[in-house]
Design a protein around this nucleic acid. Sequence first.
RNA 1: GGAGGAUUCGCCUAGUCCGGUCUAUGGCGCCCGCCUGCUAAGCGGGUUUGCGGUUAAUCCCGCAUCGAGGGUUCAAAUCCCUCAUCCUCCGCCA
Length: 418
Amino acid sequence: MIDLRVLRENPDLIRRSQELRGESTRLVDDLASADTAHRNALQRYESLRAEQKQFGKKVSAASGDEKQQLLARTRELSGAVKAAENAVTTAAEALRNAQFAIPNLVEEGVRPGGEDDYTVLREVGEIRTPDPCRDHLELGELLGAIDMERGARTSGARFGYLTGVGAQLQLGMLQLAVQYALEHRFTPMIPPVLVRPDAMAGTGFLGAHAEEVYYIERDDLYLVGTSEVPLASYHSGEILDLTEPRRYAAWSTCFRREAGSYGKDTRGIIRVHQFDKVEMFSYCRPEDAAAEHERLLAFEEDMLGKMELPYRVIDTAAGDLGSSAARKYDCEAWLPSQQRYLELTSTSNCTTFQARRLGVRYRDEDGKPRTAATLNGTLATTRWLVALLENHQRPDGSVYVPKALQPFVGREVLEPVG
RNA sequence: GGAGGAUUCGCCUAGUCCGGUCUAUGGCGCCCGCCUGCUAAGCGGGUUUGCGGUUAAUCCCGCAUCGAGGGUUCAAAUCCCUCAUCCUCCGCCA
């Protein structure tokens, strides 16, 4: 949710941001007029209401004929107040809609353009193409680690079983991520994955992403596509002490409908309806947000380093940002079987956009409540197994387990099963 | 699934039966000042949040805010309805 103060004082800032994203600047004018209309309606209502309250006092003090006369007057006022109140409600709703229509202000330095206009910040590690090069599903089946066929039988397309060493590998990786988070003073969390409409809407996932979300109609609950949702909602309506950023790392299962991605990544576990993830989430002061964003990115890179994977870091272009993100960095690992990069992590700085809607605040030096900033990022997720298997495969079909993972997985090499 | 009780400005709490003097009581905590060898105590004042008006900023003024949303009424913390959450009990079940 955009700050209306910015709209009033510096609307060009919002216009420029809209241009960078390739979105309409007319929405900014719409919002401005909705804001004015709302304020006018409010003022009309408030002065009428003040008058009504004054009369109310007189009524209670008066008696007899005098009281009857006053009552006649207040009855008229009452109608006017109700009408004015309705006008405010309508105007407020229009304002809210106009406000939701505008995505977050893009951070300084983000390039314009769409999905393909990212900037590569760096490439880390050495790209190698194994020979023979098996893809992750072939390897997963060879190792008895992934079973998509039975997954489909049980649950349909884009569902799978992680079996044996596959399950071990994922559990080990996620545990390593949690331990890493603990070392860096995150509070580990296991959040609910079914959430109320408020929580889902508050994080902005019922807007453009609405089609992506599983909904349990009978109980009016949503299945989260990322623990960002319960983590953002965790402190909603609260005033926090943010002298230091508050960091949470949540381990959860994630559910995505993957509507509109028909035919894309249909093989294996690259894109599935259900996966597990350890997600980082920070609440901090807005002035600390950019630095915190760099920190989250560094944590992600650290983890990818522990996985011994070659990857690159990209700075997403404005048009490819989510609606609440002001800036987004993705880490993409090399995928030998497809000779391309695959997104393994994504960290977004949502500045105050998300927190404003959720009512998450902190007290500044003067003790005044101010809207906090929120950030999120991936610390490990099921998809990483794809990169691990493919990059660490050996000619005989066995797969090397990275040093950092070995204690968690309990072995150094995954061997094909007979 | 059913019955009853609860939800008030950081925490506790009065008020709800019987609508208007509630501009929400008192205590604790916290902040400022006075007093004082120091500390404590004592005394005085302040202390929800949001929006709007005004302002250089403060101040000040108005409106809203008593779990949420509706309704009744000239007027709602107070009456009615729906919902949420918590507690107690009954039933059912992994």
